[in-house]
């Protein structure tokens, strides 16, 4: 009886997800907007529009759909919470783009399954075990590599509130501020990010100027960040077109010839 109930629950969940996905696709087709991704595909996107006549908010690449130019670097941003040990930046001059509302699975998961209660069959100890439901919904979890098998979902995700992360003291962390969680282990990177050496910022270049800070997960996918096919922590992406060949040159094969065979 119990098993049947759980099966129907899973089925209902799948239907829900499928319907929402179709709805999203239909919405995109109707509007016919130019939507371009910023740093990595699937993390953050911007819809192209005009700020002033003749001045767009972004310019996009025709070949890769990547953002190539920012007319308005602060579009859709909110003030960032305080960064530890950083009090030189005036209030409101550090902004981030909120990510919580972009997370497509959160409404379903938070309401249908993990509505503030610990699900039945929740493991007592924090030993990594595969969760088939989750693997079906988030494919990249199947080749999960972060921590090389030593950590798993609930080391970062809140067990009962699915729209929040959790640090290793059990305190909830917003999806908009993942640095508070990532920095618990990657402290050297957090320090460099705080000082502007690691990571990306756009806006004004003065050290006290208004900047949009890109947070960890806008560039790195925490689930498969160590993948062998990926390099340097980034998902591979399609490059832009190469430069024009010199006059009279048919191809660039000469660049690939080794002068000495070894």
């Amino acid at each position: 009886m119990n098993r049947n109930l759980s099966r129907t629950l899973i089925l209902a969940l799948f239907c829900n997800v499928a319907v929402s996905v179709f709805a999203q696709e239909a919405g995109k087709q109707e509007a016919k907007e130019t939507v371009c991704f910023e740093s990595r595909k699937g993390a953050s996107e911007i819809t192209k529009r005009e700020i002033k006549p003749g001045l767009p908010n972004i310019k996009c690449s025709a070949t890769t759909d990547a953002v190539l130019w920012y007319g308005d670097p602060y579009e859709g941003t909110v003030p960032m919470s305080k960064v530890p040990l950083l009090d030189k930046i005036p209030e409101g001059n550090a902004v981030v783009k909120p990510r919580t509302e972009k997370l497509s699975l959160v409404p379903t998961c938070t309401l249908a399954c993990h509505n503030g209660v610990t699900p039945a069959g929740f493991p007592k100890h924090k030993k990594p075990v595969p969760i088939p439901t989750m693997e079906a919904m988030v494919p990249e979890v199947k080749d999960f590599q972060h921590g090389r098998g030593r950590i798993w979902c609930l080391d970062c995700h809140h067990p009962t509130k699915r729209n929040l992360l959790v640090d290793h003291f059990g305190d909830p962390v917003s999806f908009d501020q993942p640095q508070l969680l990532c920095g618990k282990c990657h402290g050297d990177k957090l320090r460099d990010w705080r000082d502007g050496i690691h990571g990306k910022r756009i806006g004004e270049f003065a050290s006290t100027g208004k900047k949009r800070w890109f947070v960890c997960t806008e560039c790195h996918n925490p689930h498969n960040v160590q993948n062998g096919a990926h390099q340097r922590g980034f998902t591979q992406l399609q490059p832009e077109a190469p430069p024009q060949l010199p006059f009279g040159m048919k191809d660039a094969k000469h660049e690939k010839q080794h002068p000495i065979h070894h």
Partner: peptide, 17 residues
């Protein structure tokens, strides 16, 4: 006072100004 265009567009944050 703005960053150069190449700094703003680098997807990996390799460029600093």
């Amino acid at each position: 006072g703005r960053y150069p265009a190449c700094v703003e567009v680098c997807p990996v944050g390799a460029r600093k100004f």
